[in-house]
Design a protein around this nucleic acid. Structure first.
Lengths: 202, 202
DNA sequence: GCAATGATTGCACGCCGTGCAATGATGGGG
DNA sequence: CCCCATCATTGCACGGCGTGCAATCATTGC
């Protein structure tokens, strides 16, 4: 039973990735506005109807895939005792960075997605939605760490602020030439830390 | 020339508001998924085709309207000499609060929009896009204040962080019973300020 | 009034997103 | 080994969306 479930799940993820790859490939090749769901389906070797079993729209297929906090890093984050907000915020920064390294599927993919989002408002909307879902996940983690009920202000604020350098850093990276987004994001995180405690960069 | 331009512009804004009102009314009455562009057009007394001259989608009509920084408050913000980031961030908070008071069209409207965004991902996407455009405007203001070129990291980061309490506060307010969103947002801004300089609430 | 500019509208067309029902594959139990 | 349950895939059909185009209509400036 568990084996089969896992198998099905893996197959599902696999098709999902194939659809995403097909969508991204065709979008960069023919331009996003000439991209249709039929084209993506054909390229991915599935039917049009099946496409919609995986993604709600072609924009969703481009952005593709919820960001998930890696289990070990999340556990480490939750294990820290301190509930001091600034400390939690810093630890959230570390958690997000570890998420980035964990979910580094393909730098070129990520850059292509950001480029499409820059040029097409519908893709941007999908990307923002994805970030928003991620932010909620981060807020829940922060709430657990703080020992407050989920949905309260402080964890939501911390999540939003902690994600800010990631959003800004990734956006800037996508416009530049650097291969790896990591350094840019780390620089932006450092910028935020400077705001919190000016002039104590070790 | 200017008189006519102004007149046309005013008429345009007026129809825009009418369409928005019609969309929101029908959405709360019949439910968002039974809402069609034809219904909105009929309610607003225009043709279907004209609707799309004003809004790109029914979601856009629901969210309706870019947030614009009020000119006087913006001038006051830019007039301050200090380029110290934390100071700029605090002033941005004040700027955003003044924007909120300026653009308080109708509290019930705003709450209805947030409720729709909560329940329908497409509306949420439109709302997030609207916030994103606003964030860029705020970032440009911050860049001018800092005397750095627009599109650099620091102003973008400051804008993102400054908007955070507004987003979080408005979201929380929309779930509660309070009539006026102002106090909730101010409380969340105060929470952010506490992060920056713990324990100096005047 | 007349010309120009711009707003409104109807039409047509292709694509989107989904409910439904049939079909196909897969894996577990007799 | 076969059958059944379960779930994924597919085709079909239908209403709604978003837009290019061209005609019409109103407003404004001369």
């Amino acid at each position: 039973m568990p084996a089969s479930e896992d198998l099905r799940e893996r197959r599902r993820r696999q098709t999902e990735r194939e659809i995403h790859a097909a969508a991204l490939r065709l979008a960069t090749e023919h331009g996003f506005d000439h991209l249709t769901v039929d084209m993506i389906s054909a390229e991915a070797g599935i039917s049009r109807r099946t496409f919609f079993n995986y993604f709600a729209s072609k924009e969703a297929a481009i952005v593709a895939g919820p960001r998930i906090l890696p289990a070990e890093a999340l556990a480490a984050f939750l294990a820290v005792e301190s509930s001091e907000p600034v400390r939690v915020l810093r630890d959230l920064g570390a958690l997000l960075l570890s998420e980035m390294t964990a979910n580094l599927p393909d730098r070129d993919d990520l850059r292509a997605v950001f480029a499409l989002a820059e040029a097409h408002t519908s893709v941007l909307a999908a990307l923002l939605s994805s970030f928003d879902r991620f932010e909620h996940e981060v807020a829940d983690a922060a709430a657990r760490r703080l020992g407050v009920p989920p949905g309260t202000e402080l964890p939501a604020l911390l999540a939003c602020v902690a994600i800010a350098p990631m959003r800004v850093g990734l956006h800037r990276w996508s416009l530049g030439d650097a291969v790896d987004p990591q350094p840019q994001v780390e620089r932006t995180v450092a910028l935020l830390h400077d705001l919190l405690a000016p002039g104590d960069t070790p």
